[in-house]
Simulated assay, not measured.
Amino acid sequence: MEQQVWVPFLEAVERACRRLFLTDFKAKPLLRAACDTSRIAARGRYEERGQIVFSGTADLSQDPTFLKVGSHYYVREIYPAEIDLTSLQAWIVSMESDRYPSFAAARPDHAINELPSIQSEPKLGVVGPAAENSGGTAAARRNRQPEGQALVQPFLTALWPVGIPPRTELKDAELVQAVANAMDIAWKEKKPVPGVNRRTPSAETILRAAGRRK
Results as ranks from 00 to 15, higher is better:
Thr65Leu: 06
Asp36His: 10
Gln89Ile: 12
Leu10Arg: 13
Gly136Asp: 01
Pro101Arg: 04
Ser134Pro: 03
Phe66Asn: 09
Val193Ala: 11
His72Phe: 11
Gln3Arg: 15
Ser117Asp: 15
Pro29His: 05
Glu132Ile: 10
Ala131Cys: 00
Pro194Arg: 07
Arg15Gln: 14
Leu31Gly: 03
Ala41Pro: 02
Phe155Cys: 00
Ala182Ile: 07
Val7Ser: 02
Tyr73Ala: 02
Ile112Phe: 07
Val53Met: 01
Asn181Trp: 09
Ala41Tyr: 08
Ala209Arg: 06
Trp187Thr: 12
Ser117Trp: 07
Thr23Gln: 07
Phe21Thr: 14
Lys191Met: 09
Ser120Met: 07
Leu10Asp: 14
Phe25Met: 09
Arg107Val: 08
Phe25Gln: 12
Leu151Thr: 12
Lys123Glu: 14
Leu175Arg: 08
Arg144Glu: 10
Asn181Cys: 03
Ala106Gln: 13
Asp59Gln: 06
Ala42Trp: 01
Ser134Ala: 11
Ala203Val: 06
Arg142Pro: 05
His72Arg: 14
Ala131Leu: 01
Ile164Lys: 00
Ala130Phe: 10
Trp187Gln: 13
Pro129Gln: 13
Arg213Phe: 05
Pro122Met: 03
Ala210Ile: 08
Leu170Trp: 06
Ala178Asn: 07
Gly56Phe: 02
Arg144Phe: 04
Ser94Ala: 15
Ala58Pro: 07
Glu47Phe: 02
Arg76Trp: 04
Glu48Phe: 12
Asn197Phe: 11
Gly163Asn: 05
Arg198Lys: 10
Ala105Tyr: 02
Met95Ile: 09
Gly136Phe: 03
Arg18Lys: 13
Gly56Arg: 03
Pro101Ala: 03
Ser71Gln: 13
Arg142Ala: 12
Val69Gly: 00
Ile118Trp: 00
Pro101Thr: 10
Asn197Lys: 15
Pro201Arg: 08
Glu82Val: 08
Ala81Thr: 10
Ile78Val: 15
Leu151Glu: 05
Gln177Ile: 05
Lys171Arg: 15
Val5His: 04
Trp187Tyr: 10
Lys28Asp: 04
Ala139Val: 10
Thr65Pro: 01
Glu11Met: 06
Leu88Met: 13
Phe9Cys: 00
Arg39Glu: 15
Arg142Tyr: 06
Ile83Thr: 07
Ile112Ser: 09
Thr57Ile: 09
Ile185Ala: 01
Glu82Thr: 09
Leu151Ser: 03
Phe9Asn: 01
Asn143Phe: 02
Lys190Cys: 11
Lys171Cys: 09
Pro154Ser: 05
Arg213Val: 13
Ala131Gly: 14
Val162Asn: 08
Met1Val: 12
Ala150Ser: 12
Val13His: 00
Cys17Met: 08
Lys190Tyr: 09
Ala33Trp: 02
Ile78Cys: 02
Thr65Arg: 14
Tyr79Trp: 04
Lys214Gly: 14
Thr205Asp: 03
Ser134Lys: 13
Val7Leu: 10
Ala106Met: 10
